[in-house]
Amino acid sequence: MDFKKALNLNSYEWWRNHRRFVTFGGFLVLLGCWVNPVIQESRNKNLCVRTYSELYTVPEVLEKFNAKQLEEFGLDTNDFAKALAYQTCTSQKAIGK
């Protein structure tokens, strides 16, 4: 009994039948490794924005930024807090660079 034929161990035949799938899978893995730092950086930035926006919605902090004038102009304090948080997180001081 020929085990090579019974178990389909001919590597050239296997590669010929599966080369598109293996090549496409390899490219997907390489793309994932290349994009992973960008995704991690955006996750960290989102966490920073959420944290700072909660901090900026505290009334004592809003008084510092003159939130009453914002309400007079019809701006929402939550939107203002998110904008300030995004501005703080994009600066290099907040990220620690």
Rank of each mutant, 00 (worst) to 15 (best):
M1G: 06
M1F: 08
K4V: 14
K5Y: 05
A6M: 14
A6P: 01
A6L: 14
L7G: 09
N8E: 12
S11Q: 13
S11C: 10
E13F: 02
E13R: 12
E13H: 05
E13T: 11
E13I: 04
R16G: 03
N17R: 13
N17D: 14
N17I: 03
H18G: 05
R19L: 06
R19W: 03
R20G: 15
R20K: 15
R20V: 15
R20S: 15
F21K: 13
F21G: 05
F21L: 11
V22I: 15
T23M: 12
F24C: 10
G25M: 11
G26D: 04
L28E: 03
L28M: 15
V29L: 09
V29K: 10
V29S: 05
L30C: 14
L31H: 05
C33H: 10
C33V: 14
C33Y: 13
W34H: 06
W34D: 02
V35W: 11
N36G: 03
N36Q: 13
N36D: 07
P37L: 07
V38E: 07
S42L: 10
S42A: 12
S42R: 13
K45E: 04
K45M: 07
K45R: 15
N46A: 15
L47T: 10
L47C: 04
C48A: 08
R50E: 09
R50N: 11
R50T: 07
T51F: 04
Y52M: 12
L55H: 06
Y56H: 03
Y56W: 08
P59L: 13
V61P: 00
V61H: 03
V61E: 04
L62F: 01
L62D: 01
L62I: 08
E63F: 03
K64W: 04
K64G: 09
F65W: 12
F65Y: 15
N66H: 14
N66R: 15
K68P: 00
K68T: 12
Q69M: 09
E71D: 05
E72M: 12
F73M: 09
F73C: 03
F73T: 10
F73D: 08
G74W: 02
L75W: 07
D76Q: 13
D76N: 13
D76W: 11
N78A: 12
N78M: 07
N78E: 08
N78D: 06
F80A: 15
K82P: 00
A83M: 04
L84C: 01
A85F: 00
A85K: 00
Y86N: 03
Q87Y: 06
T88K: 02
C89Y: 01
C89M: 02
T90I: 08
T90A: 06
T90D: 10
S91Q: 11
S91K: 14
A94M: 07
I95E: 13
I95V: 14
G96C: 05
K97T: 06
K97H: 07
